[in-house]
């Protein structure tokens, strides 16, 4: 609170008791500050002059005068006029009766005036109360308008926040999709790398040989199957070219043949361009097998070969 604000609040009596006591300590030591405060308080006190006068009840005067010991001034006696003396002289009792009638009428008039005064006072009181109600109503209206403005501002902020949340949500969704795609790509690359490493391991073995497996059925004459293997190893690489693509419910399956035994091995499908590579694992060295065959089987492969026979079949040299 600045000194100017302190002076203003002190002048209108708005400082708390403690604040006022502290301010008055400053005031005591500063004639300059006292002069500033005097003008400020005079301005505030002038507000008292702005209040509408209101007549109190007649009883108040009696109470005040009783407390101060000041007697209420008695009503001045009616002055005797020459006319009434003359009437009293002329008409005696009649004049007294007329005077009595006038007194009754006068009392009635005074009562009526008293009632009128009270009614005016009551009206003034109502006016004052009405004025206060208007002030309170103005306050309430201002407060309502202010609250409405604050509510509108809050709604705007909420709408903006919701828009930001929606935008962030969309960004998050996009980032999540990109992350998923990136994870898939990483997985794909990782698998490709692993496959390449396996293939490289096969091709890096000592005494690697290549066996070309001929087509056994005419429909596959344009295709080529090659087997890269070392006789003493248990893993080999099969490459395929120009194989016709299969429907999703079918697959190519490798068979290792030893005598009458047809041992099921890996299954594979080719790319759309008809190529494929596959590392085949065996429990025994490849020198233990006589032939290798390829069949078309239901997706997932089978434990026994297709009765229609192999599409490729050839010896291991």
């Amino acid at each position: 609170m600045t000194l100017d604000e302190q002076i203003a609040l002190y002048a209108i009596g708005a400082l708390d008791e403690q604040e006022r006591a502290e301010f008055e300590r400053q005031l005591a030591g500063s004639p300059e500050l006292r002069a500033r405060v005097a003008e400020e308080r005079a301005a505030a006190a002038a507000l008292m002059l702005s209040v509408e006068p209101v007549a109190p009840s007649p009883a108040l005067k009696q109470k005040v005068m009783a407390r101060t010991g000041a007697p209420i001034r008695p009503a001045e006696p009616p002055r005797s006029s020459g006319l009434s003396d003359w009437l009293r002289y002329l008409f005696g009792g009649l004049a007294v009766a007329c005077a009595s009638l006038a007194l009754v009428l006068g009392v009635g008039l005074l009562n009526a005036q008293s009632q009128l005064t009270q009614q005016r006072a009551y009206n003034a009181q109502l006016q004052s109360q009405l004025q206060e109600v208007r002030v309170q109503l103005d306050l309430a209206r201002d407060r309502t308008a202010q609250l409405e403005r604050e509510l509108a501002a809050a709604q705007d902020r909420l709408a903006q926040a919701e828009q930001r949340v929606q935008a962030l949500q969309a960004d998050a969704d996009q980032a999540r999709a990109e992350l998923t795609a990136a994870q898939s790509e990483v997985e794909r690359v990782r698998n490709a790398l692993a496959a390449a490493e396996n293939e490289l391991a096969v091709l890096s073995q000592r005494d690697v040989r290549v066996a070309s497996i001929p087509a056994f059925k005419d429909d596959f004459r344009q295709g080529a199957i090659s087997l890269f293997y070392a006789p003493d190893a248990t893993t080999a690489l099969i490459t395929a070219h120009n194989l016709p693509p299969l429907s999703p419910d079918r697959t190519y399956q490798v068979w290792l043949i030893k005598g009458d035994q047809r041992l099921p091995s890996e299954v594979f499908n080719t790319s759309p361009d008809g190529t494929g590579r596959l590392v085949v694992k065996s429990d025994e060295p490849f020198s233990a097998f006589d032939n290798i065959g390829i069949t078309v089987e239901p997706a997932g492969g089978r434990p026994t070969p297709n009765p229609d026979g192999p599409i490729f079949l050839g010896p291991l040299g």
Binding site: P53, V54, L60, Q129
Partner: peptide
Amino acid sequence: YVAQAFGLALRMMQDR
């Protein structure tokens, strides 16, 4: 001055 004094007091107290 009673009316002005009473007007001020009534304005402040709201109670005759």
